[in-house]
Design a protein around this nucleic acid. Structure first.
Lengths: 175, 175
DNA sequence: CGTTATCCTACCCCTCAGGTAGGATTACCC
DNA sequence: GGGTAATCCTACCTGAGGGGTAGGATAACG
């Protein structure tokens, strides 16, 4: 596996927060981490570390003390999965030598040594990196949660209006 | 970094073999690993492990004894980078729970537990996996080596025919 | 003031990446 | 056939990092 469980668990926490934000009142009370840990079946003490990264990246906000907890720092539609994964895992790069300088240009650390062409393999890794980052950037937290929330609304409200909601294309799993 | 140096080094070995195949006579003597190790500045003993994986995946062929070495098992145009990376790193999956069953369909190991929707995050990881595999599959070893070989021919033969070779699009680095 | 939560620091175990070492085997060449 | 140059194979080592635990300090309710 290429991403650790940091990304997996952390994304689940973010999804949990986003889902709550769709259901409940918008600015209402934050969710305690213990609640999320229990619901997702993940160890609380470990989630604390992950959520600390999310907080430092200003993706979640915290309220301390009794009735404290976490909530999204911004609307789910404005949070890209690239931000989330990067906050959890660190910079996204397929291998060490590929890095992205300020805005998007991919460079190989061995560039500028005129002796040899930049590693001929650079072409490969830059493409891989580009495709990963593009995929992660195109998808927002809201995209992740929407289908589930829609299904839930369909179940709980039992077809208040059975037709009409336009089909989003976000469930067509890319094979 | 998401791929280890196994992928990085191994790809460089494959590129080295492919480049030699373009230059020299096609079916000529194989290249000793020591030669490659020296040229690429990589430890021989470690490359032996990597090339063993490539051999088991039938991507390279070996000849033992004096004047032995390695050569590509197939033409570079028919070897996709997905094969190479997978031989070196094992199955390509962004996280543990996502795997690809026989032919391309991506499944989450937690699918089929009807209690909860398959992890809502599945949508994210399947997309990431898809984009990585797609990128890796679309590119062949020949694509990697062609630009370098072209530049080299341009330098050494000093414009035998200065025009005519149709432009391949493989150098447009995706930003 | 007690309770409930976030915060922070330190530690721990185990796997695996990354590499070394040393020998067995095979094939060429003189 | 014997030296020699290569692949092959197994075992081992070391450090870093993943995946947690533990315990307490701090803050906000009531």
């Amino acid at each position: 596996m290429m991403f650790s469980t940091k990304a997996e668990y952390g994304v689940r926490v973010m999804a949990h927060l986003a889902r709550r934000e769709l259901d409940g009142a918008p600015g209402v009370s934050p969710i305690a981490l213990g609640t999320i840990a229990e619901a997702e079946g993940l160890p609380l003490a470990y989630l604390e570390h992950l959520v600390a990264r999310l907080r430092r990246a200003q993706l979640v906000e915290s309220r301390r003390g009794a009735h404290g907890g976490y909530s999204l720092a911004r609307a789910a539609e404005t949070i890209t999965m690239a931000e989330v994964v990067e906050a959890l895992e660190g910079e996204i790069a397929p291998i060490e030598c590929i890095t992205a300088n300020a805005d998007g240009a991919l460079v190989c650390v061995r560039d500028g040594q005129p002796g040899h062409d930049p590693c001929p393999t650079k072409l490969l890794w830059t493409r891989v990196q580009g495709s990963i980052v593009r995929t992660l950037t195109q998808m927002t937290l809201a995209d992740l949660v929407e289908p589930a929330a829609k299904a839930q609304r369909r179940n709980s409200a039992a077809a208040l209006r059975s037709a009409g909601t336009p089909r989003t294309n976000s469930e067509t799993a890319t094979a």
